[in-house]
């Protein structure tokens, strides 16, 4: 694997994983309430990769086109968070969220709104937990739904000279009886990632000093 210009130490990675885990737990709990069914959420695994590599990673896993809910965040570290599904999953998710009482036509009509709402729940849980745990505050924009390949989703900032890095979180969330799985990715520039790294170190220090 290519060595990235910035990388997280093992403990930093553990810390970030746990923080996201908390967020994902919250999200799953909220999702469970929305869907009313069994939701299986994996403990996330984290990679810091280039945008290009992130696009490759996701296209390796997903054959079909993708659909994503995107939310920008601003604060000590800024960027955008993406909740990504294979496009074929999209209606399934909407069906699951709406309780399976709607016709296909109604589902299609509601798709955009339902996706944005679901994305908002999950991304908000993650970002808010991160901010909370790192004792900082983040401002988030209204979610938007975008479609396309891994490349279009990750190379959104092509005008930017310095290629951004992607905090790629594999979160497999499987919903029983519904063919749904998704990923969370956070795209940040180098300064933001450096800040995140610092904040994680602070968090680790805090946790360790509890020993007293």
């Amino acid at each position: 694997m290519i060595t990235e210009p910035i990388s997280l130490a093992e403990l930093e990675r553990d810390a970030l994983t746990e923080i996201v885990n908390i967020g994902v737990s919250r999200a799953a709990s909220n999702l469970r309430k929305m869907i009313g069914g069994e939701v299986l959420l994996s403990v996330p695994s984290i990679d810091v990769v280039s945008q290009r590599r992130a696009a490759r990673l996701i296209s390796e896993r997903e054959v079909s086109d993708l659909i994503a809910v995107r939310q920008n965040f601003q604060g000590p570290f800024s960027g955008c968070a993406l909740l990504i599904f294979p496009e074929t999953n999209s209606l399934e998710l909407v069906r699951a969220v709406t309780g399976g009482e709607l016709s296909t036509a109604e589902l299609v009509e509601m798709e955009h709104e339902a996706l944005a709402e679901t994305g908002n729940v999950i991304l908000n849980s993650c970002l808010a937990t991160m901010a909370n745990m790192l004792k900082r505050s983040l401002q988030m924009t209204i979610p938007e739904v975008i479609r396309g390949s891994g490349a279009t989703l990750f190379e959104v900032d092509e005008t930017n000279a310095s290629e951004g890095l992607v905090l790629f979180l594999y979160i497999n969330f499987s919903v029983r009886k519904h063919d749904i799985r998704g990923y969370i990715a956070m795209i940040m520039d180098l300064p933001s990632l450096a800040t995140l790294k610092e904040l994680l170190d602070e968090f680790i220090q805090r946790v360790m000093s509890d020993d007293a």
């Binding site: 746990e18 885990n21 737990s25 919250r26 403990v43 937990t129 968090f203 946790v207």
Partner: peptide, 9 residues
């Protein structure tokens, strides 16, 4: 620390 802060599992 994550659990105490609200992670589920």
């Amino acid at each position: 620390a994550g659990m105490v802060a609200g992670a589920e599992h």
